[in-house]
Design a protein around this nucleic acid. Structure first.
Lengths: 135, 135
DNA sequence: CCGTGTGTACTAGGTCGAATAGTACACCGG
DNA sequence: CCGGTGTACTATTCGACCTAGTACACACGG
């Protein structure tokens, strides 16, 4: 399965699903039009409640990452169709996360050049990487 | 007062204090050796419990941002004295936050150049800015 | 030595979001 | 009709956060 979840993580399970699917779409694992597992199927796969999956799907639809068709299923949305309702707020959060990242980099003693390399490396990780071999 | 807190924010109050002081140090508001308000004084200023402030101070000391001297007070630490115990973990979190930022930038339809500008702008915001005029 | 101020530790309790379990409904397509 | 889809609702559990109050150990100046 291309998605995993850690129940003991401090970040909520539904948020992990949201992040995971957003990452899969951004990386190209999932193409526009691809069908996602049903809420109940995914819930069984992840060993969680179907309401938790539903909550994740609803947030993903609000962000226009997926499209929901009652009675048929959920699919990866075509980019740039209907604009999300809260772009401004999300941009602010994005700016703030970068600001906090700079602050943390400072306290970790990172040189500006090192942090910049980390920034571009993260771009690579976001579009393709994700090799995880453990044990 | 150079620090404010929003009790209704989703991010915990003690975390807001940690972030705020880290930001103040990184921006240069607070210099190494400067004394911080006592837990009780700051608690009164922010209208919160002193235990919450203490929790923030403890995390700040673990991160080697401040130094605590029993019976005397807390002070901004000299940079690079004793290394923090969890650098590796914090670096991983930093990398991950940048990865998530790239993913979010993708779903917001940001061009790479725009996002890079935002990245450098955040650097400026982290070292000085902070003008907040409301009302 | 005493008093004040420092950070720290502990218990008890309240609040809130996350997650579960279970059930029910409305929709689609064969 | 029937099976699968997302959705909605209640009830309940659980843990993090925060408060309130108290107590302790330490440092410094009188």
């Amino acid at each position: 399965m291309w998605l995993q979840v850690d129940p003991r993580s401090p970040t909520p399970v539904y948020q992990q699903i949201v992040d995971g699917i957003k990452a899969a779409v951004a990386a190209g694992w999932l193409q526009p039009g691809d069908r996602l597992p049903s809420v109940r199927d995914l819930a069984v796969s992840l060993a969680i409640n179907h309401n938790t999956v539903a909550k994740a799907y609803q947030e993903l639809e609000r962000s226009r990452v997926i499209e929901v068709v009652r009675g048929r299923g959920t699919f990866v949305a075509q980019p740039g169709q209907r604009p999300p309702p809260d772009v401004a707020e999300r941009m602010d959060k994005l700016r703030d996360s970068l600001r906090l990242a700079w602050i943390e980099a400072y306290h970790l003693g990172l040189e500006e050049a090192e942090f910049e390399r980390m920034f571009w490396q993260a771009r690579e990780d976001a579009r393709g990487g994700e090799r995880k071999e453990e044990t």
